[in-house]
Amino acid sequence: MNPLERLSQERLDGRNRRMKSIIETAEKLFLVKGFEKTTMQDIADEEGIGVATVFRYFPRKEKLVVSVAVHIMEKKIAIFESVNNLDIPCIEKLDQMFDFFMSLNLSEFQNHTRLLDAFESYAALSEQPLEGIENYFAAINRTSKIFEAIIEQGKLDGSIRTDIEITEAFISITYAFASFSRKLTIFQSISITESGCEFEKQHKILKNIFLDYLRAK
């Protein structure tokens, strides 16, 4: 790499680091103040830069909001990919995938869950499609592709059923379980059953029902 190319790469790396830092700062503020009440000036002040710099990277706040949501999704995708890369049968991967969703009540994941729920409501109530929203949908699609790859493995290793539309069943079950996990995370301080069953028990019961349904007989 010649000096000019090296300088260009260093500038690109510096820009990427700054963009990531702004996104992470925005994520913290959005969690505390919400999307509506957090201003670009708030983010600039917290980041220790001029607000013009924030606008240079993100000309509209909506674009920054979407970037935060995508940033959170990418962290989840990295976990899904790590599970997919494990050298274990498909049904065991599904077990670990459900365990991940059960961990959403941990502090970091809990914050991510709250923000993604708030983001989806924010996007749904927006009069116009948010700038960059296609990147969020692309992240969701990447998640689906990973799930599909796990299922394809299961068809080959014989650990899951093949007498049903297994791909559709798994994706439906996964999103239902993930949604259930997210709701329990948000309302974890409220008992939602008359028996006062702990959330962990509810998770395990549902997980076992789903795994028994998907497992090869």
Rank of each mutant, 00 (worst) to 15 (best):
L7I: 13
S8A: 15
Q9V: 09
L12M: 09
D13I: 08
D13S: 11
R18P: 02
I22N: 00
I22Y: 03
E27D: 11
F30T: 00
L31H: 11
V32C: 11
K33Q: 08
K33G: 05
G34S: 06
F35R: 01
D42S: 06
D45A: 14
E46P: 04
G50A: 10
A52C: 05
Y57S: 13
P59E: 13
L64H: 03
V68M: 01
K76H: 12
I77Q: 02
A78I: 10
S82W: 10
V83N: 06
N84M: 09
N85C: 10
D87G: 07
I88Q: 08
C90H: 05
D95V: 07
D99S: 13
F100G: 02
F100P: 03
L115K: 06
E120P: 03
Y122R: 06
S126E: 07
E127M: 07
F137D: 04
A138S: 10
I140E: 10
S144Q: 12
K145R: 15
I151A: 00
E152L: 11
R161Q: 10
I164R: 11
E165G: 02
F170K: 00
T174Q: 04
Y175R: 03
A176C: 13
A176N: 13
A176F: 14
A176H: 13
F177P: 00
F177H: 03
S179F: 09
S179I: 06
S179A: 12
F180L: 09
F180A: 04
T185H: 03
Q188M: 14
T193G: 04
T193Y: 09
S195M: 15
S195L: 15
G196S: 05
G196W: 09
C197P: 02
E198F: 12
Q202V: 00
K204N: 08
L206E: 06
I209V: 12
Y213V: 14
R215F: 03
A216Y: 04
K217G: 05
K217I: 04
